[in-house]
């Protein structure tokens, strides 16, 4: 067993874990933050994307112990329960950027990471290129791309609520 310390959505957590435990397992099973999903479990589909120290990573391919000392943000950390949605979440709702919703948390975490790296004015080509690590089997991506563009713009307009990041 190994002791892991990290900050998740602004809250300090400590746990004694098996070193084999994946980061996605840790947030889902230990912390009960089940918004981060497991899809392919082979670092392809992107439904497990969350942020470690402000960067999007595939949490099915990171050991929880590797995130020791890090600051982790999951989809739950973007807005308070029942509170106002993060502009990217609001854009996905407004533009209906989802159907079954399974890929959505990963899409939104990936989308915010794109904005952090590429800014608020994103063209369609950039968005489609940057989303290549996130698979959606329902939408055909059209509305996701629209949502990301609108969410990126909204993030530039509104004073960004820092949420847990």
């Amino acid at each position: 067993m190994a002791i892991v310390n990290m900050t998740v959505n602004g809250r300090a957590v400590t746990a004694d874990i098996d070193p084999r435990m994946l980061l996605v397992q840790f947030v889902r099973e230990n912390l009960r933050l089940t918004g981060t999903h497991v899809g392919c479990d082979t670092s392809q589909c992107g439904s497990c994307v969350l942020h470690v120290d402000g960067q999007a990573v595939k949490a099915c391919t990171v050991l929880a112990i590797q995130a020791d000392g890090s600051s982790v943000t999951t989809i739950e950390g973007l807005s308070a329960a029942g509170g106002e949605l993060h502009p990217m979440q609001a854009a996905f709702r407004e533009h209906h950027g989802l159907q079954c919703g399974y890929c959505t948390p990963g899409m939104i975490m990936a989308a915010i990471d794109i904005v952090n790296r590429k800014g608020h004015a994103l063209d369609e080509t950039t968005i489609r290129d940057e989303l290549e690590g996130n698979l959606c089997r329902c939408t055909g991506y059209h509305n996701i791309v629209k949502a990301v563009a609108a969410g990126a713009e909204a993030m530039g307009r509104e004073p960004i609520r820092q949420a847990a990041e």
Binding site: S43, G46, V49, Q55, A56, V57, K58, T61, V62, A110, D113, I114, R117, E130, E132, G133, N134
Partner: peptide
């Protein structure tokens, strides 16, 4: 290489 998330690791 890979995708943006893979390139972060």
């Amino acid at each position: 290489i890979g995708d943006p998330h893979v390139r972060h690791r």
